[in-house]
Amino acid sequence: MDIKDIIKPENLVYQKTPLMTDKTLSYCPGCGHGTAHRIVMEVIEEMGIQSETIGVAPVGCSVLAYDFMNVDMVGASHGRAPAVATGIKRCWPEKFVYTYQGDGDLAAIGTAETIHAANRGENITIIFINNGIYGMTGGQMAPTTLEGMKTSTSPYGRDLKSMGNPLKMTELLAQLPGTCYVSRQSVHSPRNVRRAKKAIRAAFESQKANKGLSLVEIVSNCNSGWKMEPVASNEWMVEHMFPFYPLGDLKVDGKLVNNQ
C-alpha cells in the first residue's frame, strides 16, 4: 500500500491538539515540558472546557507557557502561582483554574503559597514539573535535587548535611485534608504519557466536582541542566529519580493510597 493512500484525513489517528498554538516551543530538544503542556491541553480539549479555563504560568522555563497553551492565561511572579490561581478562582468559582509550576517555583520560593492553597482546599489544579533542578537560570540546585547530584551550585554533588534533603512536596501535600487527588507521573515513554494524561484528567474532573485541590507531579528531565543527551537523561531519570520519586497515585478521592 502506498504511503499516499494512508496519509489521508479519514485515516488520521493522532495530531497535535489545536489547543496548542503553532508557535515553536522554547524548550530544549527532548525536554518533558513540551509533552506535559500538550497533554494538559488535550485534557482541556477532551473535556470541552477551553472557554471556561484560565491557566497560570510560573517563572521558570515554562514562563512562556501562555505562548503555547491556547487558553486565557496569566503570568505569575516566581512561586506565587497558587496565590494568583486562588485570586482567580475566588472571583470565578465556576471556571477551571490551573497552575503549571516547576520544582524551584513550587517547592522552594512558593512553598508557602502551595501548602496554603492546598490546605484551604482551593478548588484548583496544579501541574508540577519536577526536574530536580532550576532549568531556566542555568541548572542550579533545587530543593528536589537528589543526594549527590551535581548542579552548578552543588558542583561536587548535593551534600545533605550542608544543603539539606531533597523535598517530597507531593507526599507532603497528599497529607493535607484540602487535597483531593494527588498523583505522580512522568512523560518519558508513550505508556507514561498516557497514564499522566489520565491523571491530569482525573485532576480536572476532581476540580469539576468541587472536591478541593488536585495536583499532578510530573517527574521530568532537564537534559540541559543535567548535561545529558535527551534519551540518556530519560534513562538517568528512570534509574535515579523514580526510586526516590516513585510514580503512581498518592491520593484518590480524598483518600491516601496505601501501597505507596
Binding site: V56, V74, A76, S77, R80, A83, V84, A85, T86, G87, I88, R90, C91, A112, E113, H116
Partner: peptide, 11 residues
C-alpha cells in the same frame, strides 16, 4: 506576598 498575588490573579 500571597495577598498581593491573590489581588493580582483576581484583578
Amino acid at each position: 506576598v500571597a495577598a498581593i498575588n491573590m489581588v493580582y490573579g483576581a484583578a
